[in-house]
Design a protein around this nucleic acid. Structure first.
Lengths: 192, 192
DNA sequence: ATAGATTGTCTAGCGATGCTAGGATCTATC
DNA sequence: GATAGATCCTAGCATCGCTAGACAATCTAT
């Protein structure tokens, strides 16, 4: 049995190596540079090895997305728990969200921009994604206001943040005013 | 001179045919299906002809984006001018925006999701794009509220709409609640 | 009208991509 | 140490965006 266990462990290690390498490559040179050939070369295996772990490139992107979702959820909960009062929590949450997106653009793309073959908004949604939304809900739910469904409010707030991220990074919004936009958003949306 | 004019006219016609065909193909089967080969076949010319009109596929996407921006600006102004009062105008504008995105997903992708090689948020921004933003500004500027820069307010509102569009279409938001989300957004953001 | 010059267009092909079949190699068990 | 089986790599397919160079159509000028 020990032999099989070792093999499984090595396989899991290699799978983590693939995901980590893909992520690093994507952050450094963009997802376009993450070709199966280059990725295979970096992990020092041949291309077909990738396909023994993942169905294809899409699934690799999906794996990076799940990893990112878990990190984002943790980051959001960390700043939320460190803030005093609902209002400060929301502001800190919003900043942390934008900050995560700015510091991990490739991961953010994997999560929301690219096709990682992941299900959303239904029961098949992977746990990390549901949990990331839950992290948003925990803080945003308490400032939804009377008579407003917390889930719906979270969706709208989240959409606003996501819009800011994508438009900013695509060069559609002039940079530098992020902080003022966040303040405006929190001021208006959060019922404190 | 008449000969040259005729040639120029025919060339312009063919360029419009390329853009229209690309758009139609993208709306029907998605941008992935818009390959240079298939596009060439549809316009009944060979591939290199495309490159005598556009630098590459990116520029074709960009052309569709500009066409879409002009249409969107017109659509937004139409509903805005038909509505009575600032509040009704904003609601109508938001609905029209989401409606345009839903009815022209490929065009919307060309404008905001894909790389059409277009400049944004600077002086090199093509006129139709600046004008589409201006159309938003005309209606949203009057509900920005005291002490809030109209441009900044428009950016935030726009980002929220854009976020709703992308998350909804990517399957990240459960469908069906669009109307309630719009109402919440307008209720909170617009200072009427 | 015809020869030459100039456009305009197409055929064929390059390099790169995601992905896979089939053979080679290495490993574990007897 | 031999054999059966798991593991991996070489080589190649189809398709992509894009382009060089040959060919054909058209215009100009005699």
């Amino acid at each position: 049995m020990s032999v099989q266990e070792r093999k499984q462990r090595e396989r899991a290690d290699r799978e983590r190596l693939i995901v980590a390498t893909a992520r690093e490559l994507a952050e450094r040179q963009g997802w376009d540079a993450v070709t199966t050939r280059l990725l295979a070369e970096r992990i020092e295996y041949s291309q077909p090895v990738l396909y023994s772990h993942f169905r294809g490139k899409r699934e690799i992107i999906g794996a990076v997305a799940l990893e990112g979702a878990a990190e984002m959820a943790a980051a959001l909960r960390a700043v939320a728990s460190a803030a005093d009062g609902p209002r400060a929590r929301v502001t800190a949450l919003a900043r942390a969200y934008l900050d995560f997106a700015e510091r991990n653009p490739a991961v953010y793309d994997a999560m929301f921009q690219l096709d990682g073959g992941l299900a959303f908004a239904n029961e098949d949604t992977p746990e990390p994604l549901k949990d990331a939304f839950a992290a948003l809900l925990e803080t945003l739910g308490e400032v939804a206001g009377d008579g407003v469904h917390p889930g719906l409010f979270t969706e709208v707030f989240w959409a606003a943040l996501h819009g800011l991220v994508t438009l900013t990074r695509a060069g559609r919004l002039p940079p530098g005013d992020d902080e003022r936009r966040v303040e405006l958003l929190v001021d208006r949306l959060a019922m404190v």
